[in-house]
Design a protein around this nucleic acid. Structure first.
Lengths: 189, 189
DNA sequence: TCAATAGTTGACCATTCAGTCCGCAATTAC
DNA sequence: GTAATTGCGGACTGAATGGTCAACTATTGA
């Protein structure tokens, strides 16, 4: 006996995510969020208790999307090297298209690292899961299917490179450097 | 015929840097900066025209300090691998001591990337210089002293890993992962 | 002594911000 | 129709912000 919601929460969350991704927590005002979602404050506050909840929800949504993309790249091809070529290729393509937003999780680490433990926990957990995914992706090929230590180390190094690539993207580094880094990193596999 | 300044601008700048490093631009209020420097607003505003100038000056100071440290690590030892072992060892030591501030330049990229072109330019230039320094540090050893492409690619990959290490530090990743990443990265040299 | 600058304290201003509230129209189920 | 909810718009609040100003003391060189 009540009116139904006219928009998808997911779509609103996409808008929220975009703003925080681009502008950070403090850099995004409620006005920006209203504009990005096409909703007004009241509708937003009906869904989320406060701005921080919007941020955390956006962060978690980003993580989910990011994981889906990474999983696709890292399970499709049949060799470890091809898998990471696919993953890093996506980063390069993004940078080549002028998308300089970088990685929202990295941004969040820098943005909220000292202020919001919950945000840091989300980021930290995401990186842990990513590392695990990297290890699994490596374990399809030799020597990583036999040598556990090599697998762990390589996964950690690739994760580090991956995050670095996204920082370089955000920092507007020349595409040449981004491509070179990705290329060299893949060759180590 | 005038009273002399009673503090060192450099010391004040160190305080300013610490605050922005930890809290980001928007996250740092003038009150925080007053507390960190031990100066009051008026004295601060006599040195800097506004808050943004303080931020940019702090960023440049960080870059200078960071470069000095990197230069020391990357010119001391006699082999390329030992040089990067020294550099990454510093990052690990910092993380091991619980210093989770990460890299101010990376933070700045995330924090001010979309808002302040000058900050982005500083960050971008710093990364360019860092890449150049990495190349020079590699060029002492084979095959990088002969193979220019290998040198460029390796330098880019190491830069990416280096930035990634600092993000992992900021994101509170387990020390195990940071160490593993550094170890594997150094082995690729 | 005098002029000029440094430094401190506290008041002050305009703006912005997150968050709340109210009124109104629209939509749904009963 | 009625009750309940959604969405919109605008007004509003209290707090915090960056930045300025004025008044006062202290220190310096001439």
């Amino acid at each position: 006996m009540a009116r139904l919601r006219e928009f998808e929460i997911g779509e609103a969350l996409d808008g929220v995510m975009g703003v925080f991704w681009r502008q950070g927590y403090d850099g995004a005002s409620m006005q920006d969020i209203e504009a990005a979602t096409g909703l007004n404050k009241q509708s937003l506050y009906r869904i989320f208790p406060d701005k921080r909840a919007m941020y955390l929800a956006a962060l978690e949504r980003f993580e989910a999307i990011e994981f889906e993309k990474a999983e696709e790249a890292l399970t499709g091809p049949a060799t470890a090297r091809a898998r990471f070529e696919a993953l890093f290729g996506g980063v390069i393509a993004q940078a080549a298209q002028g998308d300089r937003r970088g990685c929202f999780l990295c941004n969040a680490a820098a943005d909220q690292g000292q202020e919001d433990e919950e945000a840091t926990a989300i980021v930290s957990a995401a990186m842990g899961r990513l590392e695990k995914m990297f290890r699994k992706a490596l374990a399809i090929s030799a020597p990583y299917n036999r040598d556990r230590k090599a697998c762990e180390e390589r996964a950690a190094a690739l994760l580090s490179t991956y995050l670095g690539l996204r920082i370089l993207t955000k920092a507007d580094a020349p595409l040449r450097v981004i491509k070179a880094a990705a290329s060299a990193a893949v060759k180590t596999i």
